[in-house]
């Protein structure tokens, strides 16, 4: 009898379903999901919908998980699919290419590179702190979000589809209906801008031993 209860307890503890009764965990999970969805959809209502749908789908399918971290990864996986669906329903990227980011790109290149295409001395990339340290700092994520917000729309979308949703490039180009070559340029422009923005906002290895 006792043993049966014990086993039941263990089973409950290890099952994904138990997570649905842990309100602290759920509230935290919901916030994390919302933040992820908002970043990519840039629309609070659409993000709310995607999270709601993902949580509902997760709840309906809830299975067994070895702990909350595995459960969380799984729910994020469902949300990623919901976000891809939402992006699919949206207008194609092509229409967004006319927003004039190209002129900015030339200005940025003129700032970063000299006439022979080498890093201009003041703009030469300096070392960032070690990634393990950096990614554990909440301040990094705030800067990261702020810099994402500054990206032109089409760059942000392609970058996030690649790096956050984990789409393969072929998939991503097809999704946005752009050539592989153009796709790689968009990703490069996004990465170049993000690293430049983060560096300007003060990421540097000089502060490696303290806060950012």
């Amino acid at each position: 009898m006792l043993l049966a209860r014990f086993h039941q307890g263990v089973r409950l503890k290890r099952s994904g379903e138990q997570d649905w009764t842990d309100e602290t965990y759920l509230a935290g999970l919901r916030l994390a999901l919302l933040r992820f969805a908002r970043l990519q959809l840039r629309d609070a209502a659409a993000a709310e919908d995607a999270v709601q749908e993902a949580l509902m789908a997760a709840w309906l399918q809830s299975g067994e998980f070895a702990g909350q971290s595995a459960h969380q990864t799984w729910v994020f996986g469902i949300l990623r699919h919901k976000i891809v669906d939402t992006l699919r329903r949206r207008q194609r990227l092509v229409g967004l290419a006319e927003l004039g980011a190209e002129a900015d790109d030339e200005a940025l290149d003129a700032l970063l590179f000299n006439a022979s295409g080498h890093w201009d001395k003041p703009a030469k990339p300096q070392a960032w702190p070690d990634p393990q340290t950096l990614l554990a700092q909440r301040q990094f994520w705030q800067l990261f979000e702020a810099c994402l917000d500054h990206l032109p729309e089409q760059y942000a979308r392609v970058f996030m589809a690649r790096e956050f949703l984990g789409l393969e490039v072929a998939e991503l180009c097809a999704e946005f209906e752009v050539s592989a070559n153009h796709c790689s340029v968009l990703l490069y422009r996004a990465r170049l801008r993000l690293r430049t923005c983060l560096s300007e906002k003060g990421l540097s290895a000089e502060d490696d031993h303290g806060q950012l």
Partner: peptide
């Protein structure tokens, strides 16, 4: 730096 951006994406993806 771009590798760090990749790692950031992976972390974000898993919450």
């Amino acid at each position: 730096q771009v590798q760090t951006l990749r790692q950031a994406g992976e972390r974000l993806r898993d919450g």
